[in-house]
């Protein structure tokens, strides 16, 4: 693999009068012990758009994504510096309640992780914990979120079967339904289709396309075709930095940085 300059960077500008920014990082750095894994990434994410984060494995795209809703806080010895601006608050500060924040910035993981509970309980578990006990509202919530996740038709007859009995693709869509039942502002997806077969993958992709009317979506993917198919913007990560960030179309047709060009044309990764 070639060594590319980490100073050769292109980050697109947003017109902040017409383009609403849902969440934005400023000089975000992640440390594992003394080792700096993410070197000062500043990226704005536009509301109601899908943004892809691409790059080779180990480029830091997943670490970056997991920092946005502070999932890295749970890993011993991890430190995150810099700002994450969301609704005019820096959510990477101690006075922000991370639990409340995560209700609005949801996440779907690489491996489907439904709870060992029924489909119904998988979706209603968290809302119930947060005080929603109205049976009718919960029923509606289950139906709406399962419909949005394109799973309703397949499971509506038996909502009380275990979430663990679903196939990989169905389980992942259950996880998406579980996340959107919380009605978050932003949905973070960490390679949601990497463990799935091609047919399930395309169903998940269709699901995401319909969700962007209501949610801001940031998705990490190692599948460049997927990024090209579904996203509005794409950021290319290399060695813990975002080297290029632009409209997806431009990234895949006229990249401005050599590293991006080599990566999207399949020279490494």
């Amino acid at each position: 693999m070639d060594n590319y300059s980490l100073d050769d960077i292109f980050i697109r500008d947003f017109d902040r009068k017409t383009q609403e920014i849902a969440v934005e990082t400023e000089d975000l750095r992640v440390f594992y012990g003394d080792n700096e894994a993410i070197h000062g990434v500043s990226l704005p994410f536009e509301r109601y758009k899908i943004t892809s984060l691409i790059g080779a494995s180990g480029s830091g795209k997943s670490t970056f994504l997991r920092s946005i809703n502070r999932m890295n806080d749970n890993i011993d010895g991890t430190r995150v510096t810099g700002k994450i601006m969301y609704r005019d608050v820096d959510i990477n500060s101690d006075n922000v309640d991370i639990y409340e924040m995560r209700k609005h910035i949801g996440m779907v993981f690489q491996r489907p992780n439904p709870f060992a509970k029924s489909i119904y309980d998988n979706i209603t578990f968290a809302p119930k914990r947060f005080g929603e006990h109205d049976k009718q509202k919960l029923d509606e919530m289950v139906e709406t979120s399962l419909k949005q996740a394109a799973l309703w038709d397949q499971v509506k007859d038996d909502l009380h079967q275990s979430g663990l009995s679903l196939s990989g693709g169905q389980a992942q869509r259950l996880c998406i339904a579980r996340a959107i039942a919380m009605q978050p502002d932003i949905l973070l997806l960490d390679e949601p289709a990497s463990a799935l077969d091609p047919i399930s993958t395309s169903t998940v992709e269709e699901t995401l396309m319909t969700l962007k009317d209501q949610y801001t979506i940031i998705i990490v993917t190692h599948n460049m075709q997927q990024a090209a198919r579904i996203s509005d913007y794409t950021a290319f990560f290399y060695s813990g930095k975002a080297l290029e960030y632009d409209e997806t179309r431009k990234i895949f047709t006229r990249p401005k940085i050599k590293a991006t060009e080599d990566y999207v044309s399949g020279h490494f990764g």
Partner: peptide, 19 residues
Amino acid sequence: MDPIREAMLKRSRSAKLER
């Protein structure tokens, strides 16, 4: 004032349970 921002700056029930 943004209610979500307000809520994030308060201590949630979950935070209390965690403690």
